[in-house]
Amino acid sequence: MAEGVLSPGVNLEAFSQAIAAIQALRSSVTRVFDCLKDGMRNKETLEGREKSFVSCFQESLHSVSRDLSELERLSNLVGKPSENHPLHNSGLLSLDPVQDKTPLYSQLLQAYKWSNKLQYHAGLASGLLNQQSLKRSANQMGVSAKRRPKAQPTTLVLPPQYVDDVISRIDRMFPEMSIHLSRPNGTSAMLLVTLGKVLKVIVVMRSLFIDRTIVKGYNEDVHTEDGKVDIWSKSNYQVFQKVTDHATTALLHYQLPQMPDVVVRSFMTWLRSYIKLFQAPCQRCGKFLQDGLPPTWRDFRTLEAFHDTCRQ
């Protein structure tokens, strides 16, 4: 089986001779070192000892050079394994007769494919991320990855008073938006944002970072039976489930670890554009409805309304 695959590129006869030549070369090299190790001995006169050592050394060096040139001659005869194999020499693994026991080759192929895909997607992702001005990763600002974990805790221990100030300033900024801040579970703030008579948003904060956000209808209950803000259940309406998804995307988009207050303000500005959720037609197709849903997407820069499937 193996011969069948090998024969076009490799001369088997020369191959076995070459292996023999390698063995010969190794033993002649060993002889050289043996000779050096033994040194001059077993001769009566100094001159005799020197002479016999030099001739012995010379002879073993000659045999090394002879064996080496023999090996070189044979290696030309062996021929080259097919070079157009995509995996080069590792392709020879496929010739391993114990394939079934050690599926090394198929695993190698799989790993190769994955690494190719990974590289491709990483390329695309880095292209896209570089277009964003505000981003979660601070790498572009020259902050190394090693420093990032250290940078975060400083903004995580902002005093609650500072968080209150930032939120109340945002609250005053937008008259049609009312923000109610509470701290039901220790220091982390929870915001209940009511936007006109359109929707309500529950925003769970960790210091000034927004952890989680849920959008519900204006007529939906945002409290659990025991009167606490319900941060887990989703809206009953498809339109607000969609807006929740988009708001979560927005949280990933608006990120600037060094200026968390700017992030919260940007997010709220973006959220405010939903005041016209039911009134704004899609900026691409001009319609109000697509598959029963109004334009639920708002562009992060222009705040224009689009259907989920109409945005670029």
Binding site: N219, V239, F240, F278
Partner: peptide
């Protein structure tokens, strides 16, 4: 149209449907 509570907000949308 269940999600909306202000009549004039969603009239156009309702009409399109």
């Amino acid at each position: 149209y269940c999600p909306c509570v202000v009549a004039n907000d969603c009239w156009n949308l309702l009409m399109e449907f």
